[in-house]
Design a protein around this nucleic acid. Structure first.
Lengths: 248, 248
DNA sequence: CGTACGCTTGACTCGTGTCAAAGCCAGTGG
DNA sequence: CCACTGGCTTTGACACGAGTCAAGCGTACG
């Protein structure tokens, strides 16, 4: 569950490699990327909308989220990120950030300079492709979230979010069979599925009453994966993982 | 308003160049991309979820949309595309499509083989960056849509969608000062903002009653841009256009 | 031990969905 | 040239999901 004996890059490289089968040289180049590690507390902005960062953030441990605010101050979380993700990789090509990135738990993050990333991309087109692909998967997840928020009721929305968490965490080895850690407040869940926190509470009770989920502290367990998938209308296709991981 | 004397690539190249200032050689390489033109009727799928196309679609004339369906068959449109866009550029790196792409009006589209795109990307890293950036802007728009659908009421959502259309169309020269063509049914608008078509009808009437929009056939005019932006909570930052276009 | 934050509950309100019927074209064919 | 048709828009009545408000509860932490 901790970063353990890995280098900060390990999870990211493993993820890139699961699709692209990089050469030893390419992997080495990634390993050699200078990373400035930093420990952050929970509920802390990493970068803010309007910023023009000169570095990307690599999430090593903990969960982060990307959020936006309406002019009236309502918050919408548009993505959660788990270890191995690069939550603001977009900043490599978009000069100014259109969203804010914040920790939701205490986090270990590594910062990689844009110039270092650009150098490695120029030299290794396959790494460029792999990183590009990462941003495309992000985009695919956003599309699914639009569907989720736009066309499912609160009950299915929540079920869908839980399904997504399970699959993403399993893919990086942070979930056992059927249980994983979900250290989010009901307010954060509400901001993610576009409802009120009161209603999140009712929906969670309903999910528990129907035995679709069980929870102990921040641990969530899913007794019947197929049943939860069904009520969520969840199809992992949009996560674009390789089949072994999804099947699990 | 028609494709006119342009080659099919013109709008796309102009868009890429507005950010990246490509060299003559790079522009020529783009111009030389083989494109297979095709005329399509309205309401026709171009590619479907689950497909693995070997080509990308370049929209030359008309509007297309990307949509997804819930298991119960509810449709959510997650993006609209206008001439100059490449609505399924993602397929270059994601083997299987996670959404469907359809025309909403009669369209002229050009198909570009993936292998041709990959070849040009390998040779010209700046073109890679420009195309990558395009997909990042798409992702940014998806994020804004999550906010739109999740945290704004139907009235603001519709206003926001209209603002986005105006800015995108102006950027490719398809909108005069304050009026543009919006040949969408209320059902399509409903699928885009995640409400029922009946409610779309009421919201549009409300917008007209408040003189925030006027419409004649499919033509929409915006009498007071600042006022519409205000009720929509619209900030064009997320479209990542260069400032001259946005200001207009 | 208290204080703060998050969770839970109930009552009430309100935005939207649903259903069903009617009106309005624009295109088609007789 | 006009009646027919089908798709889209418009309307009204009603139902329901979800938001809001406000109070009370639990618990982790200083």
């Amino acid at each position: 569950m901790t970063a353990g004996p890995h280098s900060p890059h390990t999870l990211m490289i493993r993820k890139l490699e699961s699709i692209f089968r990089l050469s030893t040289e390419e992997k080495q180049a990634l390993h050699d990327l200078p990373v400035q590690l930093q420990l952050l507390k929970a509920d802390q902005d990493i970068v803010r909308i309007g910023d023009s960062p000169s570095q990307c953030c690599l999430l090593v441990e903990g969960y982060t989220c990307v959020y936006k605010l309406t002019t009236e101050g309502k918050r919408q979380i548009v993505a959660f990120y788990v270890p191995g993700d690069m939550p603001d990789l977009q900043s490599l090509h978009l000069k100014v950030l259109d969203n804010s990135l914040a920790t939701v738990t205490p986090c270990t993050v590594g910062f990689i300079q844009h110039e270092d990333l650009r150098r490695i991309c120029d030299r290794y087109p396959r790494i460029t492709a792999a990183l590009w692909r990462e941003t495309l998967v992000d985009a695919s997840i956003f599309r699914e979230w639009v569907l989720n928020v736009g066309r499912r009721d609160a009950f299915s929305r929540m079920a869908h979010l839980l399904c997504e968490f399970r699959v993403k965490l399993k893919a990086v080895g942070l979930a056992e069979d059927d249980t994983f850690d979900l250290p989010l407040t009901q307010g954060e869940l509400a901001d993610a599925i576009g409802t009120s926190n009161v209603h999140v509470n009712r929906v969670l009770q309903d999910l528990r009453a129907k035995d679709l989920i069980r929870s102990k502290g921040t641990q969530v367990t899913i007794p019947d994966w197929e049943k939860l998938k069904a009520v969520a209308g969840f199809d992992p296709l949009y996560l674009h993982l390789e089949s072994e991981e999804v099947a699990a």
